[in-house]
Design a protein around this nucleic acid. Structure first.
Lengths: 340, 340
DNA sequence: GACTGGCACTCGCGAAGTGGGAGTGCCAGT
DNA sequence: ACTGGCACTCCCACTTCGCGAGTGCCAGTC
């Protein structure tokens, strides 16, 4: 059975009311609050169809209707216009992010901003190392047999590792190594560097080969393979807002999932360019998050994606609002990264 | 009225039972479970006294007794022996921390370990910059008018900042600056460096004075004054264990407090050397944490304290166990920092 | 055929009522 | 100083019950 225009309108009204009031919505209340030009009885018939199709359900036999995950999905896909941000929100974004002093600060401010604007849990992935390109490598002698290698990414992120050398090394040789590495790697995306690093070892003069080998091992292992992705989190207190009605009683599984960086990276890190992805309840692969929804998007300078960010909340969340906010913040942060 | 030996024994029994069962404990159950050699009636009299003195209270007229914050305090101060760790726990600590690859990793593992062992929320402060001493400064030319200054602390922590120079600078001059800075500052505690930094500017030859001034500004501002302290958190899901009986119904205020780094630093950062501090419920200055207790201690190589760590949980927590665990982990991590 | 008004029905929810039982305070006795 | 006994308190879990929101269905209307 096809859903005609009015039935969709009814679904939209149900979602909006339910999100606003958090209470099952009945036919009478619907016609009153939205000016559907029909009677409650008609709406009831429509609701019966919507229920049959699986978009809404009754918590109890004689209660109003509540959207199902499928209902939210239809709502998000077809029925909602992305809300434009209010000027106040735009100003908030600017005010909040202006004056950030370094990358850490940007990420921190961003995640708090998102949590505050959406009143949900916010997650921001640090600009991914593997997708970023290299601005500079620095080698710092710590002792005669120990170097610290510092990598500075275009996004401003800095990583460092200690390298134990097989033997003592001269200052001039360090300079030489530094120069060669930078020549070869600067401007490249980290994900593309492994063959180049190997080439560096191959091309080394014999005297520099042992230290270069040690260096390459560390570079490959820690910067590329185990390109440690970092995550910032804020707004967990928002989970405890809905009086435990959301999340079927216990926050525990949600909090547990939020502590697993691997899970967060999966949810917020796997983003395609300029796409905002919405995962609703059951669509989620993670068992513990079946009662939650996620709005995630990528961000980065221009059309490059260097990381993901988004929010997590109950399935009954304000999707249009949150989508708009997440997108706006992502765009703003992307621009910010582009400038520096 | 003085509390004789047996009354204290009764209090101890009440605390232990209540912590274990989370239910008000009555006179009959007490004599059964602990072999007090007296009758329930006698215990009742003792309990009446303990109640009068404010160490225990009745949730309802005809229920058992529950310790008050004052009761826990007395228990912690006088009645509990620090539990020795089980061999399994000792092994867990070692297994968990061995193989940490850098400071970030150590802190991460530590905080998760603490959360797991105590089943509470764990907090670990990164080794404080201001209390740590400098191992090395590195200056990295990014462009002709831009330097990146990297500071490596003895504890392994690395901080970096960008510095815009007033004019172009030669490579040799950078080397010169690097050498002078390291000569003057290496080995000093960061908190002691401000006068030395100023002296560096004074002693500079005229040609190096402008860049050195720019550098000193950044050093003073960002590394010393705004010595950004970092915090790692884990185990928030443990808050949701006690079925909402702890924390009088809402996790929200607790979660909110945990998101404020300032608060956490106050709670876990202000630690005296080799002291374990216990804050119980009301003793807490933070309004939102009046229903929580905190066990915090300092850690660092030898007797130096470079940061704090600890756990936060409901007032009815296993104090002896948690104190022992926090201390053991702190000592272990301190030793670890001493080695590197 | 689409919509409407009317009506009987369902059933969750909160209020009110109830009995059992754990725990107490007190007192007289040893 | 401690104990056994006893009357008392009052929380809690359980049941009952009436209300009312909301429904499904049907006959009637445009």
């Amino acid at each position: 059975m096809a859903l005609d225009e009015r039935k969709l309108e009814v679904l939209r009204a149900i979602v909006e009311d339910y999100v606003a009031t958090q209470e099952p919505v009945g036919s009478k209340a619907l016609v009153e609050r939205h000016n559907l030009r029909v009677s409650p009885a008609t709406v009831r018939n429509d609701m019966a169809v919507l229920e049959e199709e699986g978009y809404i359900r009754q918590p109890h036999t004689s209660a109003g209707r509540v959207p199902t995950d499928a209902g939210y999905r239809l709502f998000v896909d077809k029925l909602s216009r992305v809300k434009p941000l209010s000027p106040a929100e735009r100003r908030a974004i600017e005010r909040f992010l202006i004056g950030a002093i370094d990358l850490d600060d940007v990420v921190h401010r961003t995640v708090r901003l998102l949590a505050q604007l959406t009143r949900q849990v916010a997650v921001v992935q640090y600009p991914s190392l593997s997708r970023a390109s290299v601005r500079h490598f620095e080698l710092v002698p710590i002792s005669t047999t120990r170097l610290m290698v510092v990598m500075i990414a275009e996004t401003g992120r800095v990583e460092q590792r200690l390298v134990d050398l097989p033997g003592p090394i001269l200052a001039d040789d360090v300079t030489e190594l530094r120069q060669r590495i930078n020549e070869k790697l600067v401007g490249k995306r980290l994900v593309d560097t492994p063959p180049l690093v190997l080439a560096l070892v191959e091309e080394s003069v014999p005297s520099l080969r042992p230290p270069m080998t040690a260096l390459s091992t560390v570079l490959l292992e820690t910067l590329v393979e185990r390109a440690e992705e970092r995550i910032a989190l804020a707004g967990t207190a928002n989970l405890a807002r809905g009086g435990l009605l959301d999340f079927q009683g216990s926050l525990r599984p949600i909090l547990e999932a939020l502590e697993e960086e691997v899970i967060l990276l999966k949810l917020f890190g796997e983003v395609e360019p300029s796409m905002t992805r919405v995962r609703i309840g059951d669509e989620n692969e993670i068992e513990d998050l079946r009662s939650a929804s996620i709005v995630a998007t990528g961000y980065g300078p221009g059309s490059i994606v260097v990381g993901g960010m988004g929010v997590l909340g109950p399935t009954r969340m304000d999707y249009p609002g949150n989508i708009a906010t997440v997108r706006a913040v992502a765009r703003y942060v992307g621009d910010l990264l582009g400038q520096s």
